[in-house]
Amino acid sequence: MDALMRMAAAVSALGAALIALAVGAAPSALASAPWLAVPLLAAGAGQLAVAVLALRGRPLAVASLLGPLALPTVLWVGALVLLPTAAAALPLGPMLAESALALGAAALLARPRGARERLEPRPLPALLTLACTAAVVAAIATAALAGTEAGRHAVPHGEHGQHQQQEQPGEAPQLDESLLDEHDHH
């Protein structure tokens, strides 16, 4: 069970890393505090490394876990308390999702390993755990990414090229009757 939880935690850290990188990769959106991009990008890279090492079953020191996983949340909460203008630059939804995924991963990965813990989980439970956590984390991460500066510029699915299809051939355009009335008066 512990090996499966570590796997789920690693996937969660992977999702947190994507969000931290996406928020940090748009310094123009952090106009009031562009320096926030540096620790966010560093934390994102660190979280990616933690996720890969955890998936490979490497034992990780608690300090090396907490650094990258807790840094964005500490930064965000610290900014909220001390620098409200800087905190306003950070998008609320993505930072909430990032904090939830990263702190959840940290809590699971920081647990001490049991003496009888299997280093590699059994195949079938591992695949089921991966599929379930992948579906949840991908949905959360994508929703959070949509709240970043990059996501705001994204075109929702199915809307590409719709401007060309708005006027169907053979259909008369709708006329504004008030304009016709006004025309009759003239």
């Binding site: 998936l55 079953g57 989980p121 591992a126 695949l127 992948a134």
Partner: peptide, 13 residues
């Protein structure tokens, strides 16, 4: 993203 997580997770773990 879901494919990436499953493929990477399976390959690494």
């Amino acid at each position: 993203l879901a494919s990436a997580i499953v493929l990477l997770g399976t390959g690494l773990a």
